[in-house]
Amino acid sequence: MAKNDKDMMESAPRKIKLSASSKAFYVICYGIVLLVAVVCLIPFLLLLSGSVTAEQWISFHGFSLIPGEFSLEAYGIIFKTPERILRAYGVSIFITAAGTLLGLLLTTMTAYVISRKDFKYRNWLSFFFYFTTLFNGGMVSTYIFYIQYLHLKDNMLALILPGMFNVFYLLIMRTFVNNVPFSLIESAKLDGAGEWRILFTIVIPLLKSGLATIGLFLALGYWNDWYNAMLYMSTETKYPLQYMLYSIQQQTQALSRIAAQAGIQVQNLPSNSLKLAMAVVATGPIVIVYPFVQKYFIAGITIGSVKG
């Protein structure tokens, strides 16, 4: 069904004759999109190729699109203890799934409330949320508070709660909810439907594109988060993948910074190829999964739009 909708959407404009200026537009349009795609793709290919290049070669010749001297050593190191990586995948998937679902629920409910024009405190509430983008406690006091009062040290909730709700998502979601005609809600009310029923049976089905967008952002946010893990996690079995990536990538710099002052002899720093290989390992799943998700994502958008 979704397929039909899409076909309709996509084939429709083709029937119209293109004027010369429209043709020129399409040429530029395709050209620019292609160019942007290439600019985005090349660094990623460099990354891939760098991850399978021998370290010494990179050190002397820099990066190239085709590996100068092929070597799988970096991957060998990463997968030497595969259970570490697999466990990290597990943690990442868990927090992403749990966080995204809960976050979507919270965001949608709240967005629905603040978009209700008959709700007296909607402006006040919006400002309550918006205020947090301007003012925050800063890293230090937030850290102290989370650990001392919320006991989030080494607690998985520390990875889920902070990213669950975001004003940015809330306001985007509100623009989607605003597109749902208020008359629909009112008539449902007249029919005796309660707020919960209106939200879940009438509004949410019309929000598919919004849910897909915010869901994607929430998921990306959780998947890419290393910061909370860095601050709050201390048991290795609870480390998400991105945090492992982050520490591998950053340790060289941090070490060289202190080496001058400390009488420390540093032995095995991660090589450039290891950093890149780790990036591939951490990003790979998303890049592979995204096109599949995208299918539903686009389908969701189309369905939502046809009805809305």
Binding site: M139, I147, Q148, M230, S234, Q250
Partner: peptide, 21 residues
């Protein structure tokens, strides 16, 4: 043994003693 990695010691170490942990 709890480990504070090289990548994060600058942020984390000064906080360690302030959290009351």
């Amino acid at each position: 043994i709890n480990w504070i990695g090289w990548a994060e010691y600058a942020q984390k170490y000064p906080l360690l003693f302030s959290s009351g942990e």
